[in-house]
Amino acid sequence: MTWVGNFYRSAIGKKAVMAVTGVILFGWIFLHMVGNLKLYLGPEHLNEYAHWLQTLGSPAVPNKGMLWISRIVLLVCVVFHIHSAVALTIVNRKARPVGYRDRDYLAATYAARTMRWGGVIILLFVIYHLLHLTTGQAHRDFIENDPYHNVVSGFQVWWVAAFYIIANLALGFHLFHGLWSMFNSLGLTHARFNPWRRNFATAFAIIITAANISFPLAVLTGIVR
């Protein structure tokens, strides 16, 4: 299996790994967002969904089995995603040790230029998010197995809601560039479909961000209580 190491050693290999892990994370985030929409259907639906997640695959696997498998996959993805991001950033800094006095961007979007800091915000957010809504240490009024309650009471604190909104905007930017860049990293170019890649990235970045932001907003405005 030396070729795996060999492949990952190259920058293009790292980008491919980044793209694949990024897509997995994106897929998860998408499903996560869809699931969270149940918030609007009321407590039973959301809690039922959470329960379903925990018992998924049962009895073939023990309770929470699938959840743990997916958590491990996600964790591995996060590790590789971050490792390659950091490694490539170091390579790139070295490749341009001296900058320009005057530097103008012609094509690079704001999103493209903030991938690294955006990523860091997302990481911090993910950690906070786990402590907040999964394990509860960062939650004042955490009730095990009642996600609906945890979400609503959590977002009623304005600065928590604000942090969620900011982090999800960062996520939106990250996806806007990442989902587009991914096609190139994986070599998916095709004259007929190329224009769709930008549209795809834009659409999903907007959908995910809008939906995710809507949750804290809905709580703050009292639509969901």
């Binding site: 920058a11 390579v91 070295k94 490749a95 094509a107 493209a112």
Partner: peptide
């Protein structure tokens, strides 16, 4: 890759 950086799809190269 021994000499140069890696691509993050800024698109700046294409623009100039």
């Amino acid at each position: 890759e021994e000499m140069f950086g890696s691509c993050t799809m800024f698109g700046e190269c294409e623009a100039v």
